[in-house]
Design a binder for these strands. Structure first.
Length: 310
DNA sequence: AAATCGTGGGC
DNA sequence: TGCCCAAGATT
């Protein structure tokens, strides 16, 4: 990409508009309440927010923080404790990785959350986005950050898109993020862009009329919805395994502190009016959950007993 | 490196 | 209703 996508003047104008908008209109979120920011809370929230709406995490974080008030407390959580506490946040493997991340920091970094982006990147459950987000939001380092909101904003801002799926590549987005990064304002800049992305520059039906940067945007008032899928035939798509996995984990959460036998699980899931679950398939799913350290299996009197892993 | 990893809400 | 989407990471 060329560096002259926007003139210096245009960049400054956008920076000022976005940062000013944020000063008066930023979302109030639990992980934004501490000044200076608490790196532990930033770490928690950023992992929780992966592929998950801010509104849900805003609800869940306070109770989680009460149960695990420190990095050390989180590091000591058992699988079962962390999975129970993770209720409603999805992608249960993330919960174990978060605990493993905390444990790694306690065991190898004196319990101090690293501020080095390359070290952060090596921790369990922390990838390119989250390492950058922590460096920027917790430690105010002037690094680029790209999430789905920022990628979508850049995609639309810089050229007129064909539809709401027309996006810059991941790589291009990071390059643009580096080029558009205002000096010394990574933190506020990227949080502002994420707010604007989630409030106005949404994937479908963007609200350009209310968007603070629509006057700078090549795609303003011009984003159209993408194809509504060729819709060939009913193509009864199979239910993804993760849906069954999620139902099983949730069932075990609800039967808190008890084990369940596999036949009961089969029966319970059947009653949810879903027909494609047979015994062998359930066994397969259970073994994968076991290998993920999410559940424990034991066979007693020829029946399989299932419980959350301790 | 394309697939897989939950869950809830919007339309 | 069924499909899409959401502060991505891992294998």
């Amino acid at each position: 990409m060329k560096k002259d996508i926007l003139s210096r003047h245009q960049k400054l104008s956008i920076h000022k508009t976005v940062l000013t908008w944020f000063t008066y209109n930023q979302k109030k979120l639990p992980w934004r309440s501490a000044t200076p920011p608490d790196p532990y809370i930033v770490l928690l929230s950023e992992v929780m927010l992966q592929q998950t709406q801010t509104s849900r995490i805003a609800e869940k974080l306070p109770a989680f923080l009460e149960q695990f008030p420190t990095l050390e407390a989180l590091a000591q959580a058992t699988n079962k404790e962390i999975i129970l506490a993770w209720q409603g946040m999805g992608y249960n493997n993330r919960a174990l990785r978060l605990r493993d991340c905390a444990k790694t920091i306690v065991d190898h970094y004196y319990g101090i959350i690293p501020d080095d982006i390359d070290i952060l990147r090596t921790l369990p459950g922390i990838g390119e986005y989250t390492s950058s987000a922590i460096a920027s939001f917790a430690f105010s380092q002037n690094v680029p950050v790209v999430d789905v909101n920022i990628r979508r904003i850049f995609s639309r801002l810089l050229r007129k898109v064909a539809n709401n799926h027309d996006m810059l590549s991941e790589k291009e987005s990071w390059e643009i993020a580096g080029i558009l990064l205002p000096k010394n304002h990574s933190n506020l800049w990227h949080q502002a862009l994420m707010d604007i992305g989630s409030l106005f520059c949404t994937s479908r039906s963007p609200r350009c009329h209310d968007c603070p940067i629509s006057s700078h945007c090549q795609s303003a008032f011009a984003v159209i919805d993408g194809e509504k899928t060729p819709k060939k035939e009913p193509t009864h798509r199979a239910i993804p395994h993760r849906i069954w996995r999620g139902k099983i984990i949730e069932l075990l959460r609800q039967s808190n502190h008890h084990s369940e036998n596999a036949n009961y699980i089969l029966h319970a899931l059947f009653q949810e009016n879903i027909s494609t679950l047979d015994s062998d398939f359930l066994d397969y799913i259970l073994k994968k959950l076991e290998s993920n350290n999410l559940i424990e299996l034991q066979t007693i009197n020829n029946t399989i007993i299932v419980s959350l892993k301790e």
